[in-house]
Design a protein around this nucleic acid. Structure first.
Length: 504
RNA sequence: GAGGCGCUAGCUCAGACGGUAGAGCAACUGCCUUUUAAGCAGUGGGUCCCGGGUUCGAUCCCCGGGCGCCUCACCA
């Protein structure tokens, strides 16, 4: 029990708990079998004016409002599907249960059995002839009131909402809806992928080399082997080992971990889907992305349009395409393509161009970092409607395959929606000798001070030497996708328990 | 990591030349047997985020710290 300074509220609740026990009633019974949700009951008994005559409707959920009147009273019960009133008085209930009924609190979980009826104002209700306490609430929940769509005394403190998400879920129905939607979206994605013949697989979350992306990993240690391990920053290289192994269409939908900042768009653990298809290339991945987003829009929003903030996003296919360097030129008039053939493109010149259009390049240590800075400052935010940005410089894409006949550009695209990168895809580099060279170039760039580079993975080169079929690959950030389809502005609003610093 | 803002009752928030605080809801007591932001009457409840300084006196002023939010940086 509570040791230190039980609050007055807690003392009162504990007193009630004892009262209930002294009546011989178990305040935390083992089981109450719920047969129907509130919305099912509503549909079944209250879809017309006249309520069918039955006496044994069973309802269970949490008390979220209480309107007592003398020896009678109404309780508002909320379950996962909705809300319903339960009415009882000293005639409808046995005397002992009536005694408990009178003592019930907002926050208690109860089950009730009784006949459905409409009150004189027409509200769907249950007249209880049996009420069972299922869990006594000792720590009061926020009480939110509502009238005509207007919310009073909203539970709004963001920090408490995230730290005690269960209260947020109990009290704020739009939060509950967002997470119901998240589950639905993820399940739709799996259905979609499975229906296209992709196999869902699981590859290591703990890896001895954190490669496959450019990011800082979390480090841990395995005691028995006495080796360092890293939480994965991407499953990419393992999934491609599976292509070597003969699987032809695989995907993994699970967590990645990156030891980087926290923001409205970043959580250290986030959900990613990666897809690999052998005997395909990036154009197949484009089609897959278009079809997937359109299907999600149809399932979630009932059409090809989704509202996000002030924007209405249309997922009609096909999406437009623009090349990476082309759109930079279009928006800034800087033509970086003239440097493509240059082995060592001049950093200072890039900075001069960038600064001329007002881009701060202080942090950039390398030519292509400057280019990418220009892209994110001057282009990204304007890509509201779905678009594919294509043809990335090879130097920025160490795992992708060249465009045939073009040694400087790779077959790669990134889908952008509402100014955000939603994914990354390319034709997978399967030449082990070239891949080895690309890893080495990454090491070189790192030595020159580039901030994020991809780690060398020699074991992966070994796999490629066995032979990987030509393939297209795709990664999609699922949290951001869910943000888009749930009209959420912070990633914390689509992650049930976002990382927060522990309360001291 | 930097800057800005915030932290007062269980919840939402007021407030005070610096003299240890208040409302609504929730809770408690009484009345009320179809209410629905139920109603009426009454009652209780606070280390005013933490620590230090100034002061006769700090929740308020100053300094330091904690946590959060927003913006920026990095990425997805």
């Amino acid at each position: 029990m509570e040791e230190l300074n039980p609050s007055e509220l807690l003392k009162q609740r504990l007193q009630k708990l004892n009262n209930i026990k002294s009546l011989g009633i178990e305040p935390y019974p083992n089981l109450f079998e719920k047969e129907k949700t509130i919305s099912q009951i509503t549909k079944e008994y209250f879809s017309s004016e006249s309520v069918p005559e039955v006496s044994d409707v069973k309802i269970a959920g949490r008390i979220t409002a209480k309107r007592p009147m003398g020896k009678a009273g109404f309780l508002q019960i909320t379950d996962i599907s909705g809300k319903m009133q339960v009415y009882a008085n000293d005639k409808t209930l046995p005397s002992e249960e009536h005694e408990v009924f009178m003592e019930l609190d907002i926050g208690d979980i109860i089950g009730a059995l009784g006949e459905p009826f409409r009150t004189k104002t027409g509200e769907a209700s249950i007249r209880a002839r049996e009420i069972k306490l299922l869990a006594k609430n000792l720590s009061p929940i926020p009480v939110v009131k509502e009238k005509d769509g207007k919310v009073f005394d909203a539970f709004a403190d963001i920090e408490t909402r995230y730290r005690q998400r269960y209260l947020d879920l109990i009290v704020n129905s739009e939060v509950r809806n967002t997470f119901l939607m998240r589950s639905k979206i993820i399940s739709e994605i799996r259905d979609f992928m499975n229906s296209k013949g992709f196999l869902e697989v699981e590859t290591p979350m703990m890896q001895s080399i954190a490669s496959g992306a450019a990011a800082k990993p979390f480090k841990t240690h395995h005691n028995a082997l006495d080796i360092p391990l890293f939480m994965r920053i991407a499953p990419e290289l393992y999934l491609k080992r599976l292509l070597v192994g003969g699987f032809e269409k695989v995907y993994e939908l699970n967590r990645n971990f990156r030891n980087e900042g926290i923001s409205t768009k970043h959580n250290p653990e986030f959900t990613m889907m990666e897809v690999y298809q052998a005997y395909a290339d990036y154009s197949h991945m484009m089609k897959l992305v278009e079809d997937l987003f359109l299907r999600l829009a149809e399932k979630v929003a009932g059409g090809h349009e989704v509202k996000y903030g002030e924007h209405t996003i249309s997922f009609k296919t096909p999406w437009p395409q623009k090349t990476y360097l082309g759109i930079i030129k279009e928006k800034t008039n800087i033509d970086f393509s003239v440097y493509l053939g240059n082995e060592n493109p001049p950093l200072e010149e890039a900075k001069k161009h960038a600064e001329a259009v007002g881009v701060d390049t202080k942090k950039c240590a390398e030519f292509w970092e400057v280019v990418d800075e220009v892209f994110s400052e001057k282009v990204e935010n304007e890509l509201i409607q779905p678009i594919f940005i294509t043809e990335y410089p090879k130097a920025m894409s160490p795992l992708s395959k060249n465009i045939p006949g073009n040694p400087h550009l790779v077959e790669r695209f990134e889908p952008y929606i509402v100014g955000r990168e939603m994914g990354n895809a390319f034709s997978e580099l399967n030449d082990p000798i070239e891949q080895n060279e690309r890893f080495k170039q990454q090491l070189q760039l790192k030595a020159e001070g580039a901030h994020e580079t991809i780690e060398m993975d020699e074991d992966y080169i070994e796999a490629l030497k066995v032979g990987m079929p030509p393939a297209g690959g795709l990664g999609i950030g699922i949290d951001r996708l869910v943000m888009l389809f749930t009209n959420s502005s912070s990633i914390k609003d689509v992650i049930l328990f976002p990382l927060l610093r522990p309360k001291a």
